[in-house]
Write a protein that binds this DNA or RNA. Structure first.
Length: 547
RNA sequence: GCCCCGGUAGCUCAAUUGGAUAGAGCAACGGUCUUCUAAACCGUAGGUCACAGAUUCGAAUUCUGUCCGGGGUACCA
């Protein structure tokens, strides 16, 4: 509809003003009005042309309108307003026809195939197996999965990837922490190492360790079994948590692979050849200052161990070697200083980094009794994602995490979540869906077997047309989501759709003595139901038939 | 110090990326179920869009500076 009008305007000015405009691009827009008085669509074309043509916008608008009047069958009326906006009023029949389109396309309504044959890798969560997933990870998990679903809706083939490291200092500490808890169960008091893991979950793991091995590993603190046992247990729980949220990764990539397949050495050698590194104080440094960084960074410590940066770089060369058309990395705000180094290194080695898109999301702050709490996995001070799902349920958790812009901090009030699950906004959407399902069921009881022959021309009430207008926005919203990769827009949209449905429901009855009208309204609500169900499925949220 | 986010109603956040009278949900107050689900709807109240400049027909949105909050700035990941 918008493109339709836009093309019409473009043609008109090309015809009328081509001599003056010449090859200049006129950047005008056609947008949905946010006020009924301004019609359905409005264009600023006359305002944009005013400075080029050196005429008053109103005069230009009048000339344009004269030209296009009656040239488009969906336009009911055109008005010119104050500074020079051209407002279009669209015919009801245009909106009514949407019902038929939704009903016939159903699950495929406005679904696109833009990504057909294209592969995208989305990397997210990527938490090392040192403890259960926290609320903080939850945001990234839901964000990553929902973005994946948006891409899939557009026909892309998405691979969800999880990158992890089960070696190194953190893991050693994890193993030692488990050992301490293990010995504790065997009656010996030891101290958790400095920077070790103090969370309760280690005690649980220690219990199953005892169950399995008894006293076999008493006093064998250095045995690798402690690390392996801990990571294995933790990974199982991480995967379970994600599964509860309907999130399943396709690939778990172990950092270890990069050492085994020689990628790490390869990267170091290549960067050396390119003259991007140097040795100093026994370490190997990357000249990041040449890429605008403040300081040079260490790639290999004097101990010979790489810093986290090196495997990150190697991992990305690995990603780029595969045939993905796009690579999306989802990181927390704490990564903002490190990923530019990775990109710089890839550029040094002549990789095309334009395929890589990095999305940073801000942190989740846990609020409890009106106090902000800093979460730390190490100190065991956190609320796990599992606990949150227990309290609120998967649907609410998913909705909650994509409800807001990823750029804004998220304050999570745990008391509120516990107390007010009934008033959660997600129920508002699901309730609308369930209500519709119920009305359709009711209509069958009232003897309306089918409503395929309902006459959409009978949908004339303001509340009915309003709903159809919102449905007509769906395509644009999905486009916005695709471009910005920001699922929040879809959440806002659904809320808006639910609002107009509830308003309609309150004011008008669907099933009445008037069979014809009932059938047409059943068609209407069926089409709303389809939109709900499609959108909720993109958000990974259930669309219940009753509540 | 430097880098990245944010600052909008009492609270949590929107504003389709520069459009017209800045909107929702909680919280407050008042109203609506003999009817297809009241987990809903209607109404009232609530705003110096942090502050100051700049850009233009037009700014919450872009630019500059200042203030406040969060994150980063490791030979931790």
């Amino acid at each position: 509809m918008i493109n339709n009008i836009k093309q019409l305007l473009k043609n008109t000015i090309n015809k009328k003003y081509s001599e003056i405009i010449g090859s200049q691009q006129v950047n005008f827009t056609v947008e949905r009005s946010n006020n009924d008085k301004h019609g359905d669509l409005s264009s600023n074309i006359a305002l944009k042309l005013a400075s080029i043509l050196k005429k008053s916008p109103t005069v230009i608008a009048e000339n344009i309108v004269k030209e296009i009047q009656n040239k488009n069958e969906i336009i009911e009326n055109i008005e010119i307003v104050k500074p020079g906006f051209i407002n279009f009023f669209i015919k009801n029949s245009y909106y009514q026809n949407i019902v038929e389109e939704v009903l016939s396309k159903n699950r495929k309504y406005k679904k696109t195939n833009l990504g057909k044959g294209k592969k995208i890798q989305v990397e997210f969560v990527s938490a090392n197996p040192t403890g259960p997933l926290t609320i903080g990870h939850g945001r990234q998990a839901v964000l990553g999965d929902t973005i994946s679903r948006i891409l899939e809706w557009n026909g892309y083939e998405v691979t969800r990837e999880y990158y992890f490291n089960d070696a190194g200092r953190q893991m050693r500490l994890l193993g030692e922490s488990l050992y301490v808890r293990y010995m504790e169960l065997l009656g010996e008091k030891l101290k958790i190492p400095v920077d070790g893991y103090e969370g309760e979950y280690i005690k649980d793991i220690a219990k199953s360790f005892v169950k399995k091995y008894g006293e076999k590993y008493k006093n064998k603190s250095t045995d690798k079994i402690f690390i392996d046992f801990a990571t294995e247990n933790i990974f199982v729980s991480i995967k379970n948590t994600l599964k509860r949220l309907n999130i399943v990764h396709d690939v778990f990539f172990n950092e270890k692979t990069l050492y085994e397949n020689g990628k790490i050495d390869e990267v170091i050698k290549k960067m050396e050849q390119k003259g991007a590194t140097y040795k100093s104080e026994g370490a190997i440094w990357f000249k990041t200052t040449e890429f605008g960084a403040e300081k040079d960074r260490v790639l290999v410590k004097k101990s010979g161990e790489p810093t986290y940066r090196l495997p990150d770089i190697a991992y990305h060369t690995e990603k780029l070697m595969q045939d993905y058309d796009q690579i999306i990395d989802i990181f927390g705000a704490d990564h903002h200083a490190t990923y530019p180094d990775v990109i710089s290194a890839l550029k040094v080695m002549d990789y095309d980094t334009s395929k890589i898109k990095v999305l940073l999301h801000q942190f989740v702050t846990l609020v409890r009794k009106n106090k902000k709490i800093k979460m730390s996995t190490r100190k065991g001070d956190f609320v796990t994602l599992d606990e949150l799902i227990d309290i609120a349920g998967s649907d609410v958790v998913r909705y909650f995490f994509i409800m807001r812009n990823m750029d804004s901090h998220l304050n999570f009030d745990i008391d509120l979540a516990q107390k007010e699950t009934d008033e959660n906004p997600v129920y508002y959407l699901q309730y609308a869906h369930a209500r519709i399902a119920n009305v359709i069921k009711h209509s069958k009881l009232k003897g309306i077997e089918s409503f395929e022959d309902g006459n959409i021309g009978l949908l004339k009430e303001k509340e009915e047309i309003d709903i159809l207008k919102v449905i007509s926005e769906f395509e644009g919203i999905m486009e916005l989501c695709r471009i910005t990769l920001e699922p929040m827009h879809l959440a806002n949209y659904l809320h808006k759709l639910a609002t107009c449905f509830h308003k309609f429901y309150q004011k008008h009855r669907v099933v009445t003595e008037d069979k014809e009208l009932s059938k047409s309204r059943l068609k209407l609500i069926k089409s709303i139901k389809i939109i709900f169900s499609n959108c909720l499925s993109i958000l990974g949220i259930e669309a219940p038939e009753n509540m």
